[in-house]
Design a protein around this nucleic acid. Structure first.
Length: 590
RNA sequence: GCACUUGUAGCUCAGUGGAUAGAGCAGUGGUUUCCGGAGCCACGUGUCGGGGGUUCGACUCCCUUCAAGUGCACCA
C-alpha cells in the first residue's frame, strides 16, 4: 500500500508534467504551518529559477489544474509560491479503512529482504550488567525489531566478552580458594562433564573483582593468571571444563537479566567462538600483503585518499603474538560470513569506540572478508548521565548495577501507583514492572542514540507529559472503553468501517494515523527509534484530544458510533505496534 | 598537538533547505451530573553559542571562532 504522502505527491507530479514542468518538483511534505494547511509542496520556488517564471505563477498553474480532484478538500497557491493542501475527508477515511485491512497497516516491506546481523548487548562473562550495558541492550533490541518489521532476516547476537585475561584471573582465584577441585589435579582423567559448578553467580561476581585487585598488587599471581589464560586458550581440557562452568553460571544469570529487560538474542556467541578463525585469517592477510610488521606487531593500513583525518593502522597481533579486540571482531566477521552471509552489519556500542569500528570495517573490506556491497554500520550511543550531567553513578560513586537501577524505577512507579486511590492493589507488583520497563525504554529511546542524555528517574517514571507511562495510560484507557462497550452489549465485529471525520479533532487524529508508514519507514532507514517515540506521543496526544471532544459510548447514531469504535481499535493497534517496536507492552489496567 | 562529536526556552529534549523555530517539565488560570481528571483547554518564555559565506529562502549546507565532551597502535 502506498504511503499517503506518495499518493498526494503523485497528483502534484502529474499536474507538473501536464503543465510542462519537471515532476521532481512535486514532492509533498507534512505542513509546518498546521494553521494554514495539512500538507505542503514547495517545489514551485525551486522550479522558478529553472523556468524563469515567478514561483507564484507556477504554483497557481498547478493548483488550478488540481481544483477538481476529489483527493483535495482545498488546494491553493500562496505567496511567494507555496502550494497548500487540505485533504478530503472521504479520501482520508478510505485510506484508513485500507490501512486496517492491510497487513501491518499496509506498510510496504523490503522488496529484497536482507540478512542483518545486529551486534548488541556486549555483556562480559562473570561480571554483572551495569548501567553502561543498558543503552546497547535497549537500542539494539528496538533496532532489531524495526529491521524485522520491514521483512528482513535479522539475527541479534549478544557477543559476550568471554575470552580475555579475566578468565585466567578467575581460574587462578578459584584455584586459591578451592585447590581440591579436580580441575587443578595433575593428570586427572575424570569426565568433567558430570561435574557441578563449584560456585554460584554471586560468588563468581565477587571472585573477579577480588582477583583483579590481587593481580595489581601481586606480580606472581598476575603471572599465574597469564599462564592460566594461555593454557585455556590452547585447549587445556581441565581449564576448558572449568571455563565452561563459568560460562554456564554466568550465561544463566545474564539471560535472566536480559529477560527482565525483555531483550532477546538469537545468538549467544562470544569472542571465544571466533578464536578458531584467527590464525587462518591472519595468514591470509599476510599472504595478500595487507598485513605487515611494524614495531614488532602486525598491522593493517586503513588510510584512504579522501580522509580528512589520519586513521592509525589497525593492530591485529601484538608483538608477543597475542590477538586483540580488533582481531577478535574481524574473526567474528569471518565466522558470520561463513554461517549467515549477511548483507548488513549493525554494531551497537559506546560512541567512543567509533575509531575501532572504522578500522575494523576498513580491514574487513580491504581483506575481502565481506563482499563490496555489504553494509557495515556502527551505531555509537552517548553516555547515560546523572542529573548533574556527569556519568551515572550510585550515591556512593560506584558503578550502578543494572538490577538496582531497574529496582529504583520499579519503586518509583510503585510509589506513584499507591498515591492513586483508585488502584487495585493485587496487580500492583506485576503492573509496576511493566510500567517501569516502559519508563526506562521510552526515556532512553526518545533521545537520539548518538547523544549523551540525562537519566532522570523521576521524570521518566512520571505519568504526565512525554513519557512511557503516559503512552501506556492512553492505551489502557482505550482498552477500558472498548471493554465497557462490549460489557454493554456492543459488538466489536460490527465496528468495521471508519466514516469521514465528523469533527476537527477527529480528522487530526486520522491524519496522524495515516502517516504511520512514513514515520516507520524513516525510522527504519535512519535507524532511529526516537522517531517512533515522537510519533507515539503525537498520536496519544491527538487521541486524548479527540476523546475529550466526543462522547463515544452514548452516541445514538449507529453509523457514527461504529465509526468511532473502529477508530479506537485502529488507534490502539497502531500504538501497540509502535511500542512493540520499541520493546515494551501495555498492561490491561494501571 | 591533531581529529571527531555536541551547543536550540529556566530545566529536559525534538526540529527531511521553506512561511510566525516547536514539545514536555516547571509556573498561572480554567475544566468532571458524561466512556479512566494519571486527562483536556488556555496563557508566557528564545542573540537557534558568536561571526562570516552559499541560497529567492539557513537551526539545517560551507568557512571561521568560542565553549564542553571524547578519541588518537600492543586494554576490551
Amino acid at each position: 500500500m502506498k504511503k499517503i504522502l506518495d499518493l498526494i505527491t503523485e497528483e502534484l507530479q502529474n499536474a507538473l508534467k501536464d503543465c510542462g514542468y519537471d515532476p521532481q518538483y512535486g514532492k509533498v511534505g507534512i505542513s509546518n504551518r498546521p494553521d494554514l494547511c495539512e500538507y505542503q509542496c514547495n517545489g514551485a520556488m525551486a522550479a522558478a529559477k529553472i523556468y524563469k517564471k515567478a514561483p507564484i505563477m507556477i504554483a497557481k498553474e498547478i493548483t488550478e489544474k488540481l481544483q477538481e480532484k476529489e483527493m483535495f478538500e482545498e488546494i491553493s497557491a500562496v505567496m511567494p509560491g507555496f502550494i497548500n493542501i487540505k485533504i478530503n475527508k472521504v479520501f482520508l477515511a478510505d485510506y484508513l479503512n485500507q490501512m486496517r485491512k492491510g497487513k501491518d497497516f499496509g506498510c510496504e516491506k523490503e522488496e529484497n529482504p536482507k540478512t542483518i546481523i545486529v551486534d548488541y548487548g556486549g555483556a562480559n562473562v562473570a561480571k554483572p550488567l551495569h548501567v553502561g550495558h543498558l543503552r546497547s541492550a535497549i537500542i539494539g533490541e528496538s533496532v532489531k525489531r524495526i529491521m524485522k518489521f520491514f521483512g528482513n532476516r535479522v539475527i541479534g547476537d549478544v557477543h559476550l566478552g568471554d575470552w580475555g585475561l579475566q578468565m585466567g584471573l578467575i581460574i587462578e582465584e578459584v584455584k586459591d580458594r578451592k585447590p581440591e577441585l579436580p580441575y587443578f589435579k595433575e593428570n586427572e582423567t575424570i569426565d568433567f562433564s558430570k561435574e557441578e559448578p563449584p560456585f554460584t553467580i554471586s560468588e563468581l561476581e565477587e571472585i573477579y573483582p577480588t582477583a583483579s585487585e590481587k593481580s595489581k598488587k601481586d606480580e606472581k599471581f598476575k603471572e599465574r593468571a597469564h599462564q592460566a589464560t594461555y593454557r585455556l586458550q590452547n585447549g587445556d581440557p581441565a581449564y576448558t571444563a572449568l571455563w565452561q562452568m563459568i560460562m554456564k553460571v554466568s550465561k544463566e544469570d545474564l539471560k535472566k537479566n536480559y529477560d527482565n529487560l525483555q531483550v532477546e538474542f538469537d545468538l549467544w556467541k562470544g569472542e571465544s567462538d571466533a578464536q578458531p578463525y584467527i590464525d587462518e585469517m591472519i595468514e591470509d592477510m599476510v599472504e595478500k600483503k595487507i598485513a605487515y610488521e611494524s614495531q614488532g606487531a602486525l598491522v593493517v593500513d586503513v588510510t584512504q585518499e579522501e580522509d580528512s583525518k589520519e586513521i592509525p593502522p589497525c593492530l591485529i597481533k601484538k608483538s608477543d603474538g597475542a590477538s586483540l579486540y580488533a582481531t577478535s571482531d574481524l574473526a567474528t566477521i569471518v565466522q558470520r560470513e561463513q554461517d549467515y552471509q549477511p548483507n548488513h552489519y549493525i554494531y551497537l556500542a559506546d560512541k567512543r569506540q567509533e575509531l575501532h569500528f572504522t578500522q575494523v570495517f576498513r580491514v574487513a573490506r580491504k581483506a575481502g572478508l565481506v563482499s563490496s556491497d555489504c553494509k557495515m554500520d556502527f551505531l555509537g550511543f552517548g553516555t547515560m548521565n546523572g542529573k548533574d550531567g556527569k556519568p551515572f553513578k550510585t550515591r556512593e560513586g560506584g558503578v550502578m548495577r543494572l538490577e538496582y537501577l531497574i529496582k529504583e524505577i520499579y519503586e518509583a512507579v510503585c510509589k506513584k501507583m499507591e498515591e492513586n486511590p483508585g488502584i487495585q492493589k493485587e496487580h500492583i507488583e506485576e503492573t509496576a514492572k511493566i510500567i517501569g520497563l516502559a519508563a526506562i525504554k521510552y526515556g532512553d529511546l526518545s533521545n537520539q542514540a548518538s547523544k549523551d542524555y540525562i537519566f532522570d528517574i523521576e521524570r521518566f517514571s512520571s505519568f504526565e507529559g512525554n513519557t512511557g507511562p503516559y503512552i501506556l495510560y492512553t492505551i489502557v484507557r482505550i482498552k477500558s472503553i472498548l471493554n465497557k462497550y462490549v460489557e454493554n452489549g456492543g459488538d466489536l465485529e460490527k465496528a468495521d468501517k471508519i466514516q469521514p471525520a465528523y469533527t476537527k479533532s477527529e480528522k487530526d487524529l486520522m491524519l496522524v494515523i495515516s502517516k504511520l508508514s512514513d514515520v516507520l519507514e524513516s525510522s527504519y532507514q535512519e535507524i532511529a527509534p526516537h522517531r517512533i517515540c515522537q510519533y507515539l506521543y503525537e498520536l496519544a496526544e491527538n487521541f486524548n484530544s479527540f476523546y475529550h471532544n466526543v462522547v463515544i459510548l452514548k452516541e445514538e447514531e449507529e453509523e457514527k458510533k461504529y465509526s468511532w469504535i473502529t477508530l479506537l481499535k485502529l488507534t490502539k493497534e497502531v500504538l501497540e505496534t509502535c511500542i512493540d517496536l520499541l520493546g515494551f507492552q501495555a498492561p490491561e489496567r494501571m
